[in-house]
Design a protein around this nucleic acid. Structure first.
Lengths: 209, 209
DNA sequence: TTCGTCATGTAATGGGTTACATGATTAC
DNA sequence: GTAATCATGTAACCCATTACATGACGAA
């Protein structure tokens, strides 16, 4: 309960990764950066404080290896700390995965949300994809407008830059269109298959573990 | 003299725009955001403080309209403030345009530097383009490596994201290749044309003013 | 006269990086 | 035994956003 605001994108990313399997910070960061690939890279300086806070909020718990043969006290061994989700953490993850507000249309939020699409409800996936698309279309609109206004008095490099930007975004829109198309047909198929007891949910199955 | 560090990208952008023509903050911000189009958008909350600091550093000066018919004091009229570059400011701009360190390979820095390419020396342009390209190729490399390592145990959405990222970057690399090619042939042409008194400089001409 | 946009500013806050400090483990 | 890399952490700083406060000016 109560807001205790998570620090944006990192919270979701960490909870999402830890849901797949428990991990220690160092590994977490690597997985994080390969997961987000081109979009983002986090440093320890932001990861560890984040973990600390998630711990304080009871969303994750540490699982220290517990060296059974060390006398008793003097446990400041400073070794790996494996983190895993608590029940509350799983709940929170589910919540973040489902909310998908306007933040998930932005570059950052979108990337992370998308990375966990296989754990996201189909209807939410669709909402995010469509939100993202209209966000991008807004941008295209305004850039095109500005481009039309200033058209003449602009040097060729600036123009080149604008164009490259436009094309990149147009490309992403096409990509989104394709994805949205796929999602839609999948949804229709599933609707046809399971005529009865429709629980609005359909994720590709929990990956066990 | 002395570092008095400029706050990253904004300084260059502001100096660059003010070099083209004097402006007040409000307009500056609009031009800024259309100039940078897809890449970036600044808010007043960062622009005004920046102007303030540039002013304090003597890089720009205010040019208040001076209402000639207002009694004398009581000039707190609060109206438009037009900023323009000082001599020192022009110097600083030139310096920023020429330095082009590693920061200008990164997304942010690159965009802004590129936007002012028509005021940048040809050799510096080439350095930036090539720096950018190798920066991107590094990223491609590491992402591809990570992709090869984890290949199997990764869900289709994550894969889709990675791929889209890769393709975007590959596309930018191709774009850069084209630009670099053009720059090279231009340089060669110029070398052939002006056989004599070579001053290592060649900008498309100072736009007068 | 009021509404929308132009115009300038600031304080609180946020979210992140850099650089550093430290220790454990592995491979040579 | 030493170098590289794994692993954890923190403090100082940086850059920018948000939300707010203020006011001018033109058009309806």
């Amino acid at each position: 309960m109560s807001s205790r605001k998570g620090q944006g994108v990192l919270e979701l990313a960490v909870l999402g990764l830890l849901h797949e399997s428990p991990m220690h910070g160092y590994e977490l960061r690597k997985r994080l950066n390969t997961l987000l690939g081109m979009f983002r890279a986090f440093s320890y300086g932001s990861l560890y404080p984040c973990l600390k806070q998630l711990l304080a909020n009871g969303l994750i718990m540490e699982d220290r290896p517990e060296e059974p043969n060390v006398p008793l006290a003097l446990q400041s061994r400073r070794s790996k700390i494996v983190y895993k989700l608590t029940a509350e953490g799983k709940e929170r993850l589910q919540q973040l995965l489902t909310e998908a507000g306007p933040a998930s249309w932005e570059d950052e939020g979108f990337g992370v949300h998308f990375a966990f699409f296989s754990h996201t409800r189909a209807d939410v996936r669709l909402r995010i994809l469509e939100g993202r698309r209209s966000r991008l279309e807004e941008r295209l609109e305004s850039v095109r407008a500005g481009l039309a206004r200033t058209r003449e008095r602009v040097d060729s490099y600036t123009l080149e830059l604008q164009n490259h930007g436009l094309e990149s975004v147009e490309r992403e829109v096409r990509w989104l269109n394709e994805l949205i198309g796929r999602e839609r047909t999948e949804q229709e198929e599933q609707a046809r298959t399971s005529k009865s007891t429709n629980t609005t949910q359909d994720m590709p199955r929990e990956t066990g573990r």
